[in-house]
């Protein structure tokens, strides 16, 4: 799980062009949106693309987005639970 979270932080920074952030600046349990690192709705769409491209996982329902993308840990948990066999 720790390795997956570390990978996710690097991928989020690359996918979203967050050039002023380093992986260590993103806490495992830090909210990714608004009050956290300040991602917006377009970033949310990019995270859905990231899940599909890097992990071959399609978000089952758009309504799950806020829970899945709440923190790096919730993303990692979702990936772990839905990783194709």
């Amino acid at each position: 799980m720790d390795q997956l979270m570390a990978n996710l932080k690097r991928q989020i920074i690359a996918q979203l062009n967050l050039k002023d952030l380093k992986p260590e600046d993103i806490g495992d349990d830090q909210p990714l949106f608004v009050e956290g690192i300040g991602l917006d709705s377009i970033d949310a769409l990019e995270l859905i693309v990231l899940l599909q491209q890097e992990y071959k996982i399609k978000l089952a329902s758009a309504e799950d987005g806020p829970k899945v993308f709440y923190t790096v840990r919730t993303m990692a948990q979702y990936i772990t639970d839905h990783q194709p066999a």
């Binding site: 062009n17 377009i42 970033d43 990019e46 491209q53």
Partner: peptide, 10 residues
């Protein structure tokens, strides 16, 4: 061709 980028689309 691969996957449309929302960040590019806007």
């Amino acid at each position: 061709q691969e996957m449309a980028s929302p960040a590019l689309f806007v």
